[in-house]
């Protein structure tokens, strides 16, 4: 059980790293605009026009 004397402080150091990473992200405005970001992954930047189904031409 004495191992926790090492493991818990080690965990705390990892925790410090997580806090630092989060602060870095906030400072870099990663959390400023959460509405559009959820969509961004669905949108390809420069996709060629996909082939169309015949239904497109029904007018």
């Amino acid at each position: 059980m004495e191992i926790i004397f090492v493991l818990i402080p080690l965990g705390l150091i990892l925790l410090l790293f997580a806090v630092w990473a989060f602060f870095w992200a906030v400072r870099n405005r990663q959390f400023d605009n959460l509405d559009a970001e959820a969509w961004r992954i669905l949108m390809d930047g420069d996709q060629a026009p996909p082939p169309r189904e015949p239904a497109d031409r029904d007018r």
Partner: peptide, 9 residues
């Protein structure tokens, strides 16, 4: 979101 994407793109 599409407007955002369009402007940024």
């Amino acid at each position: 979101a599409a407007c955002v994407w369009l402007v940024e793109g």
